[in-house]
Design a protein around this nucleic acid. Sequence first.
DNA 1: AATTAACATACAGGCTGCATGTATGCAAGA
DNA 2: TCTTGCATACATGCAGCCTGTATGTTAATT
Lengths: 197, 197
Amino acid sequence: MQDAKPRRKQAERRAETRRALLGAARKLIVAKGYAETGTPEIVKDADVTRGALYHHFSDKADLMRALVHQEAAAVASEINADTSTDQSPLDAFMAGAKAYFSAMSAPGRARILLLEGPAVLGLGEMAEIDRETGGATLLEGLRHAAAQGAIGDIPLEPLADLLSSAFDRAALAIANGGDSEAYEQATKKLLAGILKA
Amino acid sequence: MQDAKPRRKQAERRAETRRALLGAARKLIVAKGYAETGTPEIVKDADVTRGALYHHFSDKADLMRALVHQEAAAVASEINADTSTDQSPLDAFMAGAKAYFSAMSAPGRARILLLEGPAVLGLGEMAEIDRETGGATLLEGLRHAAAQGAIGDIPLEPLADLLSSAFDRAALAIANGGDSEAYEQATKKLLAGILKA
DNA sequence: AATTAACATACAGGCTGCATGTATGCAAGA
DNA sequence: TCTTGCATACATGCAGCCTGTATGTTAATT
């Protein structure tokens, strides 16, 4: 009974507008891509004006940035949800990979985070967002495995980088209707090979 | 002595204009990115008019397409140049990877083929260009290794896909000043792991 | 000479970002 | 409580740029 209908607070109104903009932007950008989606179309779908958009976001790319943050946070949240503990290193990595693939299968998410996002914001900013949001989970896993001697004595950052890229590719393929079973096998092959020697 | 000079005039002029356009586009797109480079700027740098550009290319993306084709062809050519024969599978793969990294280190090439190209043309068309140009060298290598029992019984296309993505990431990192030694080590680790069991 | 290729020029439409206008919520004093 | 002043949350209009196309012009080819 806190807020009746006549009295609509500013914060509430603001949040609602923002949600409408992000929702419309997500829908259109997922369907047609960032460059092909104009701000007039976005605000029309969100049922606000361009003035509202530029009041909330500094420019069109800033709206995309907010969208990317939102999706990245969702991924992090979903992955942290099913964090299973103490297994073999390979099983742990595979569990993480599957959780990532699953989170990335949300409709449109792979396109936002793996295609349009990097194109608009650049790889550098995307990496930074990953760092803030998901953190370097993969690298930590590698460090843990390496500490137990499960990996040879090689620099881990590049290896984590390459693996991360491969995971992204697999997630994109699966999200686009690829054979998830086959891609999971290939992922396991990569991971098993690393952890063996 | 087939064609004297009078007969070659038009074609020569045409080729010159096209070269100028591609050169200017390459320079500007490498420096500032595709979206931030307008056609007025390109034709100004190439010292022609926008009419010439739209006479040669159907639209701005088509110019980008030609640029991508040009770079992809250059990569294929450089890689085929140093094709060394019969070595161990791992050495063969590593030789190919190093040749790829080297070819991708040409200034601006990684940005064109790995960042702007996919953003403008989409992953599908980029894959098609790769297929036409470089061919599925990596996949063939895997098939060869698999035929000798060097890889387990798993689908090879996804594996080649993931490896290709990892190679691209390594090439991009190296081209951007990353530690090539470290990335080559990581690449070798990935490959060795796969070829072992 | 006629045709056609290779451009050059001009124009229409759309989009982005900003500058300015307006209404509503909010906070504080009388 | 009321109202007065200010900030917030938008709405509207405009200027500049960019893309793609249509039309005009020059020079080579036939």
